[in-house]
Design a binder for these strands. Structure first.
Lengths: 181, 181
DNA sequence: CCGATTTTGGATTGTTTACTCCATTTTTAT
DNA sequence: ATAAAAATGGAGTAAACAATCCAAAATCGG
C-alpha cells in the first residue's frame, strides 16, 4: 500500500505478499477498510519510532539540524520515491474514510507532540527564547516537512525538501535565545 | 476526482456527471489515463489562474500576507475539505503514473515560478534584501503551503495552514530590506 | 484422549470496472 | 443535395475485485 496506494492494492495482492489465503485475511480483518486501519496504525508506529531517538535528544540547534538532515538523507536513499507514509495515506483517505482520517489526524498529532516536546526542552535549556511558541513552531515544521516531502516525491529531487526544512529550521533558529531583542 | 480521488471515480461516474455516453467519452479520451491527464491540465490552470492576480501584484509584504490570508480563507470556506487540487493528484498519482507525475511536477514548477517572480519584483523594488534568494524562498513557501493544506485537510482545521504560512511569511519578512545586518 | 473451538485452504459469488462494438444520427464538404 | 466523415447511444464483454462459504486441518480445554 505504501508502494501502490491503498486503492492500487487489492486484497488479493495482500494475500499473495503475506502468503495467506482469503479466508485467513478475512478471519482477522472483517473487511479491507479494517486492514487499511491496521496499516495506518502500523505506519504511524514505524514513522514515530524511526524519529523517536533523534527527537528525544532535541536539546540544541545542532540536534534539530541533524534531525532535518537525517530526513533528507532518508529520502535521498529512497530516490525520493514514496513520500511520507502517513502523509500519503492521509491524502488518499481523508475524504473517503472518515475513520481513517481521524486515525491519521491522531498520528500527525503524536508526531507534532514529539517535535513540540523537543522544542520545549530546548526552551527549558535556554537554547530557545522564552517568547518562542513551540506549539506553532512544531506545527509549522511538520507542515514544512510534509510539503517538502510531497514536492520532493513529485520532482524526484531532494531540493524542495531541503528548501522547506531549511526555511523552517532557520526560522526556528531566529528564536535562538539572546539573538532576538 | 477532486472529491473522491482518481481511483475512487469510475469512468461511469464521469459519464453520469457529464451526461454523456460511454462511446462519447472514449471517443475523446482513449482511456481513463488520458482523461486523468486532462484533469491534471484543467486543475493546474484553475489553480494558477485563481492565484495569478494576487501573485502578479506581489510588490510588498502586505500583498504577500494578503495572498496567504486568501488561501487560508479559501480553505476555511471549503470547510478544510479537499486539500490542494494539484497536491492531492500528485500524492495519488506520482508513484503510479509516470506521465502524470511529470505533468504535476510541471504544474508545481509553474506555480513556483509565479511565486518566485513575485518575490523577485519585491526584491527589485527594494522591499526584499538583495541577499535573499527568491528561488529557495518560493520553493520553501510552496512546500509550506502544500504541507499546511494537507494537515489542515486531515485535521479539518485551518490552524496547520496558518502555522505553516505564518512561518514561511515571517521567515521571508526577516529578509525585509534594511532589517538584516 | 476427545470433543469443541479456532484457524486455514481454496473454490465461488455477485458486483464493479475499464473498455469495445456497431448501428444510428448528426455534421461537414462539395 | 448528397456522399463521406465525425459523433453519439447504449448494449455488451472480459477481467478484476471484495467478500462469502464450507469442508478440512490444527489447536485447545478437560
Amino acid at each position: 500500500m505504501f508502494d501502490r496506494g491503498v486503492a492500487g492494492t487489492s486484497v488479493e495482492d495482500v494475500q499473495k505478499a503475506a502468503k495467506v489465503s482469503a479466508s485467513q485475511l478475512y478471519h482477522y480483518f472483517k473487511e479491507k477498510r479494517e486492514l487499511v486501519l491496521a496499516v495506518i496504525a502500523y505506519q504511524t508506529e514505524a514513522v514515530l519510532q524511526a524519529q523517536q531517538q533523534l527527537l528525544e535528544e532535541l536539546d540544541s540547534f545542532e540536534a534539530l539540524r541533524a534531525w532535518c538532515d537525517a530526513i533528507i538523507e532518508l529520502q535521498r536513499m529512497r530516490q525520493c520515491k514514496g513520500g511520507c507514509p502517513i502523509g500519503s495515506l492521509a491524502s488518499e483517505l481523508s475524504e473517503q474514510e472518515p475513520e481513517a482520517r481521524v486515525e491519521l489526524a491522531e498520528g500527525f498529532a503524536r508526531w507534532e507532540r514529539s517535535i513540540r516536546t523537543g522544542l520545549r526542552s530546548m526552551q527549558e535549556r535556554g537554547e530557545l527564547a522564552a517568547e518562542a511558541d513551540p506549539d506553532r513552531l512544531a506545527l509549522g515544521l511538520l507542515a514544512s516537512l510534509q510539503g517538502g516531502l510531497l514536492l520532493t516525491q513529485v520532482r524526484r529531487d531532494t531540493e524542495p525538501l531541503r528548501a522547506a526544512l531549511d526555511m523552517a529550521f532557520n526560522y526556528i533558529r531566529s528564536f535562538a535565545a539572546g539573538v532576538r531583542d
